[in-house]
Amino acid sequence: MKALAFDVFGTVVDWRAGIIGELEKFGKSHGLQRDWPAFADNWRVGYAPAMDRVRRGELPWTRIDDLHRAILVDLLIAAGIGAGDSDIDHLSRAWHRLDPWPDSVAGLTRLKQRYVVTTLSNGNVSLLTNMAKHAGLPWDCVISAELFCHYKPDPEAYLGCAELLDIAPAELTLVAAHPADLRAARAAGLGTAYVARPLEYGPDREPYDVASDHFDIVATDFVDLADQVGA
């Protein structure tokens, strides 16, 4: 293993708490009361179907920023919420301002002493760069599905990441909290490291049992991951 590529939303940053917080600020500034946790969940739920529209050719290649904004507009309309373009633009970029899980920065800092550490996210390059600046994430580089015009779990994203790093797929390990992402990476020839994020979808979600998936590494957090790989 020469490099670790990290899924970002949910694995490195706590998207749900961050988006709920941004929605609450938006609601307060507009005198609105809504079920903001449910709104945040619906915003995230719209992400996969939006990417599928691109895969089916119903939309041209589209950055995640633009998909996020379109989903947000639909949700605001459905909720009967009026907002100006500048307010929508600011709120849609809440995904740029997410905070890391408590162990993320410390774990990444250790890991990069021994390995190349990069993002491998469907988030676009500007989103990931702004997020790194906001959250203090010490990436060696920022690699996005945008560079390949293929969202994960398309194999082009995993293989393209290895190619950009000039290493074999087997020398690259994907780190993710999402088993489907890891399975797709394994099918493309990458190593796999599952990191548990039991609070990603809130405290009421049942923990996922990954024992049957046989991932190469199973860790409780990034510090535990660093311990396991000798960083």
Score class of each variant (00 low, 15 high):
residue 116 V to L: 15
residue 216 D to V: 05
residue 118 T to K: 11
residue 197 R to D: 11
residue 146 E to N: 05
residue 140 D to S: 05
residue 172 L to D: 00
residue 73 V to H: 07
residue 49 P to H: 04
residue 52 D to A: 13
residue 138 P to Q: 05
residue 73 V to C: 11
residue 8 V to C: 10
residue 208 Y to S: 09
residue 27 G to F: 03
residue 33 Q to D: 10
residue 39 F to A: 02
residue 76 L to C: 03
residue 9 F to P: 00
residue 167 I to Y: 12
residue 105 V to W: 04
residue 113 Q to C: 06
residue 86 S to R: 13
residue 214 H to G: 05
residue 172 L to Q: 03
residue 191 G to H: 14
residue 85 D to E: 15
residue 51 M to R: 15
residue 75 L to R: 10
residue 231 A to I: 05
residue 169 P to E: 01
residue 229 V to C: 12
residue 76 L to N: 08
residue 15 W to E: 05
residue 26 F to C: 06
residue 11 T to H: 02
residue 83 A to F: 12
residue 146 E to V: 09
residue 57 G to S: 02
residue 218 V to K: 06
residue 51 M to W: 10
residue 210 V to K: 00
residue 19 I to P: 03
residue 46 G to I: 12
residue 13 V to M: 02
residue 77 I to P: 03
residue 81 I to G: 04
residue 190 L to C: 04
residue 75 L to P: 12
residue 75 L to C: 06
residue 223 V to C: 12
residue 170 A to T: 11
residue 189 G to T: 05
residue 108 L to E: 07
residue 141 C to S: 15
residue 122 N to C: 13
residue 191 G to W: 08
residue 13 V to I: 15
residue 181 D to C: 00
residue 92 S to L: 07
residue 79 A to I: 06
residue 26 F to Q: 02
residue 101 W to D: 03
residue 101 W to Y: 14
residue 126 S to L: 14
residue 75 L to V: 11
residue 154 D to V: 09
residue 56 R to L: 14
residue 122 N to H: 04
residue 185 A to T: 06
residue 209 D to M: 09
residue 138 P to R: 08
residue 115 Y to E: 01
residue 219 A to S: 11
residue 109 T to R: 08
residue 6 F to D: 01
residue 117 V to I: 15
residue 196 A to S: 13
residue 211 A to R: 13
residue 122 N to E: 07
residue 52 D to M: 14
residue 130 N to G: 01
residue 212 S to H: 13
residue 149 C to R: 15
residue 169 P to S: 12
residue 117 V to P: 02
residue 206 E to A: 15
residue 130 N to F: 04
residue 138 P to K: 03
residue 89 D to C: 01
residue 77 I to S: 05
residue 182 L to H: 13
residue 209 D to C: 08
residue 150 H to Y: 12
residue 120 L to G: 02
residue 68 H to V: 12
residue 127 L to R: 10
residue 182 L to V: 07
residue 202 G to L: 10
residue 100 P to N: 05
residue 40 A to L: 01
residue 72 L to E: 09
residue 187 A to D: 15
residue 230 G to T: 07
residue 153 P to L: 04
residue 186 R to W: 04
residue 22 E to Y: 09
residue 27 G to R: 02
residue 28 K to I: 04
residue 146 E to Q: 15
residue 14 D to T: 07
residue 22 E to G: 13
residue 125 V to M: 07
residue 185 A to N: 03
residue 109 T to C: 04
residue 231 A to K: 02
residue 162 A to V: 06
residue 162 A to S: 08
residue 52 D to T: 14
residue 171 E to T: 01
residue 105 V to E: 07
residue 75 L to D: 06
